[in-house]
Design a protein around this nucleic acid. Structure first.
Lengths: 202, 202
DNA sequence: CCACTGTGAAACGATATCGTATCGCAGCGC
DNA sequence: GCGCTGCGATACGATATCGTTTCACAGTGG
C-alpha cells in the first residue's frame, strides 16, 4: 500500500482512505457480485462515509475500475529460474492457487459482468488476461526453442488450453481446478520434444 | 415453441405467453446481463404485461431459472458416426460455434453471475456444464480404449483443457475461440495413440 | 497552538424497480 | 353466439439506491 502514485502526498489521510475504500470495493465485489455492488455497502464495509467515496471517484464504475487496476499490481508472481517446464509449472500452479481462492479471483465473475457494461473495465479485463497469457506463451515458445517441448506445439493455443482449464473450473464447474494438478495439466498440453526430454512411465 | 411439457393444454394462450416470455427473458439476459435484468424490460420485449409474467413466475430468479432450463433442451448437438477423433472434432466445433455467437452463449456471463446468488441457477449451470463435459469425456475415453489416442491421457483433464480453451476466449479474452481451429485444439490436447498405444497395451 | 482540510454521519429529493391490484378487451371452448 | 378466462395496460404504494449537500469533528502541517 501507500503507493507512490498517490498525488501530492500532502495529507496522509487521502491515501489511507483511498486504499481502504479500494480494498472494501474488491471485497464487496467478491462477495456481492457486480449487480449487487452498492456504494453504500462499500462505505459501510470501509467504515467510511459515502461522501468520501464520491469525493474521490465519479461513480460506481470508476471506483471498480480503479480498484482493479490498483489491485493487479500486487499479483505479479515471482518466477524462479529453471527449465521452461519448471517455470511454467510454477506459473500455472500460481495462477491455479490464486484462481482457486483469493479475493481477486472471486471478483472475476463480477469483472466479466462489468466488462459487458463499461469499456474501461473491459479493456482492463482483456488487457490483464492478455498479459497473463502472454507471459505463459513466451515461456512455452522458449521451451520449444530449446527443444524441451515438441516443435509442433502452437504456443498461443497451448496457453489458452492451460489457462482455460484453470478458469473453467472456477467459472463453469462446481469445483475449481486443483493447483496440485498443475504438473499434470502442463504435461498433457505440452508434450516433450523428441530428444533429451524424460518420459514418465507409470 | 409449443413445448409439450406445458401442463393441461386447455388454453393455448398460456403456453404461447410462456414461450414468448421465456425467449424474451433470454434475450434480455444476453443483452443487458444479469444485474440490469428487469421484469419490465422483459415484458416490453415480449409485448406482454407485467401482470402476465407475475402470473406465471414468482419472481425474477424463478423466471430466469425456468428460461434456462427450458432453453437448454434445444441445444443438444447431433453427432454423426465416425472415429472418436471425428466425433470429438465435430462436438468441439459445435460448442465453439454456439459459444462464439448465440443468444444462449451470450447469457453465460449472466448465468455465472446469477449462479452466485441463486441455488437453482447454480445447480443448472454446473449440471449443464458437467453434462456437456461428460459427453466429451466419454468420447475421449472411447478413443483411448480403441488406441486412437495415447493411453497416458486423462480424459477428464483433457476435456477441461479443450472446453476451457473455448470458453476462455469468450469470457476472458477479447476474441472468442475460432471454431475453425477446433481440429488444431483437439490434436494438441489429444495426441494420437499409434505407437504409444502399442508400447503400453492395456 | 492554530488554521485548515479531509472525514464520517446523516438528511434529502430524485429515480427506478418491485410486486400487487384493477379494468376493459379479446381469444378460447363449448 | 356466449360465458369464461387469460391477456395487456395502467396506476399504485413500498422500497432501495443514487448522487448531493450540510455539518461538526479530528487529524495534519506549519
Amino acid at each position: 500500500m501507500s503507493s507512490g502514485s498517490e498525488a501530492g502526498g500532502a495529507d496522509p489521510r487521502v491515501g489511507r482512505s483511498r486504499a481502504v475504500i479500494r480494498q472494501a470495493a474488491l471485497d464487496e465485489l467478491a462477495e456481492a457480485g457486480y449487480g449487487a455492488f452498492t456504494i453504500e455497502s462499500v462505505a459501510a464495509r470501509a467504515g467510511a462515509g459515502k461522501s468520501t467515496i464520491y469525493r474521490h471517484w465519479r461513480d460506481k464504475l470508476d471506483l471498480i475500475a480503479d480498484a482493479f487496476e490498483s489491485a493487479h499490481e500486487h499479483l505479479v508472481p515471482a518466477v524462479a529460474d529453471g527449465t521452461a517446464a519448471d517455470q511454467i509449472r510454477q506459473l500455472v500452479a500460481h495462477v491455479a492457487e490464486v484462481t482457486a481462492d483469493s479475493t481477486f479471483s472471486r471478483c472475476i465473475p463480477a469483472l466479466i459482468e462489468g466488462a459487458r457494461h463499461d469499456r474501461r473495465l473491459r479493456e482492463f479485463h482483456h488487457g490483464y488476461s492478455a498479459r497473463r497469457r502472454a507471459s505463459l506463451t513466451s515461456l512455452i515458445s522458449a521451451g520449444i526453442a530449446t527443444g524441451e517441448f515438441a516443435a509442433t506445439i502452437d504456443p498461443e493455443l497451448a496457453a489458452q488450453a492451460i489457462l482455460g482449464a484453470v478458469f473453467y473450473g472456477r467459472l463453469m464447474a462446481a469445483d475449481p481446478f486443483d493447483p496440485a494438478r498443475a504438473g499434470e495439466l502442463v504435461a498433457a498440453v505440452l508434450p516433450p520434444g523428441g530428444s533429451a526430454a524424460a518420459r514418465r512411465p507409470e
